[in-house]
Simulated assay, not measured.
Amino acid sequence: MSDNLSGIINDNTHYFPKRVYYSDTDAGGVVYHSRYIDMAEHGRSELIRLLGGDQKSLLDESGLAFVVRSLNVSYNRPAFLDDMLSVRTRLSKCENFTLIFDQKIYRDNELLTELEVKIGCISLGDGKPKPMPREWKQVIEEKMMS
């Protein structure tokens, strides 16, 4: 398959395509508000995958996980059944324990939803914040904040 299912990175922005399916909508074909949060999560996960990060290995080998620390969402316009959307993700801050993402969901050039998502790195053993692996931080900064 030649299409990259993880999207693309261009000018420090990750572009992830997402079609709206029936399961994303209510009976009127309007996307549920919580689905935008799911779309943003998928965009961030695919961005990490494109950067070479393997979150399952991070969990299995070091007991570390990325978790949502806080989330701010603005819903501007609705999306509908069968719309083709673009989840656009930019990294605004990369610290030892925290990543802050600015995400926008578009239909063509129409801005539908804006999210600011703060992600923390924690130990699954005790649930406490832990620094992300140095090599992860380095790759993220080099590829997303240059």
Rank of each mutant, 00 (worst) to 15 (best):
P78E: 06
S23P: 00
T25C: 05
L71V: 02
N10D: 15
P129M: 14
N109H: 08
D3A: 10
Y75I: 05
R90F: 02
R35C: 08
D102W: 02
T13F: 06
K118R: 15
S62Q: 12
M84L: 14
G29D: 03
R44N: 05
C94F: 06
S57F: 00
K104N: 14
R88Q: 15
L64P: 03
I140M: 14
N12G: 09
L71A: 02
M145D: 09
N72C: 01
G7Y: 10
E46S: 14
H42L: 10
K93S: 15
T113C: 15
M84V: 00
T13L: 11
F80R: 11
F66C: 06
S86A: 13
I119F: 04
D54Y: 02
K128V: 07
P78Q: 03
I119M: 15
H14A: 14
I100K: 14
S74G: 07
G125N: 09
T98H: 10
G53V: 11
Q138Y: 10
D38R: 07
Y36P: 08
E135V: 12
D54V: 04
K137D: 08
K93C: 08
H33E: 10
L112Y: 06
S86E: 14
G7L: 06
G63T: 08
G120D: 01
D54C: 06
I105N: 08
F97T: 14
R107M: 01
P78F: 03
M84D: 03
L99N: 11
P78W: 02
K18D: 00
S2N: 13
L111N: 14
N109Y: 05
M1F: 09
E141G: 12
T13W: 01
E114K: 04
C121H: 12
M144Y: 09
D54L: 02
P133E: 05
K104V: 04
N72W: 04
F16N: 04
R44Y: 02
E41W: 01
V30M: 06
G52D: 02
I105W: 12
G125P: 00
V31N: 12
K18Y: 10
Y22I: 02
V117Q: 05
K104Q: 15
V117E: 07
K56W: 06
R19H: 08
L64G: 01
A27H: 06
A40R: 08
S146R: 08
D83H: 11
E110T: 11
V139F: 05
L47M: 15
L81P: 00
Q103H: 13
H14P: 12
D108H: 07
K143S: 12
M145C: 12
S6D: 11
F97G: 03
D24C: 07
F66G: 08
L91V: 15
T25D: 01
A40H: 12
P131W: 11
E141K: 15
S74L: 07
Y15E: 12
M1V: 05
D26P: 02
R49Y: 09
I8K: 15
R35Y: 07
Y75L: 11
D126Y: 03
F80A: 03
F80T: 04
M39D: 02
Y36Q: 04
